[in-house]
């Protein structure tokens, strides 16, 4: 029984290591900042999640002490990763707007962070390439 759990824990640790190195390598490999934002926020959160689940299983099965700290860390990371990614993307767009180097949005609307908050915006129909703004 312990052997099965050891295999599960080892598999989780190896998967976490692979995800972690892919996330950090993507930071070097990908061509521009918006794509570079994608690699660490997803892959590294999966990596840390794998390590934390492996640690929880390890202490529960092999040491007989169940600890809830790992779940707390996992929940905190899953809550904060999208917020930091959103803020970094916003900072990137605003620092590039001054140099006229923002990438195209793919429709006639501008990026949402530059739009006038006082003007009521209609929801955009995606896929058709047009919007319902009159």
């Amino acid at each position: 029984m312990d052997l099965a759990f050891e295999i599960i824990i080892s598999g989780l640790l190896i998967a976490a290591g692979v995800f972690g190195i892919v996330g950090s390598f993507g930071l070097l490999k990908l061509p521009d900042t918006m794509t570079r934002l994608h690699a660490p926020t997803k892959a590294t959160t999966l990596g840390v999640g794998g390590v934390l689940i492996a640690s929880m299983l390890h202490f529960w099965v092999l040491e007989n002490t169940l600890s809830w700290h790992e779940l707390l860390i996992t929940m905190f990371l899953l809550l904060t990763a999208p917020i930091t990614a959103n803020l970094i993307a916003k900072a990137h767009l605003h620092s590039f707007r001054a140099d006229e180097k923002t990438s195209p949005t793919g429709s006639d609307r501008d990026w949402a962070t530059f739009e006038d908050a006082a003007v009521e915006q209609q929801p955009m129909i995606t896929g058709s390439g047009k919007n319902q703004n009159t």
């Binding site: 976490a16 950090s24 930071l27 900042t33 660490p40 990596g47 390590v51 970094i88």
Partner: peptide
């Protein structure tokens, strides 16, 4: 800033390991 954020996440993983 993005690299620093990733660094913090990697260090958390190292601490748990």
């Amino acid at each position: 800033v993005l690299a620093l954020d990733t660094m913090v996440i990697n260090i958390i993983a190292l601490l748990v390991l």
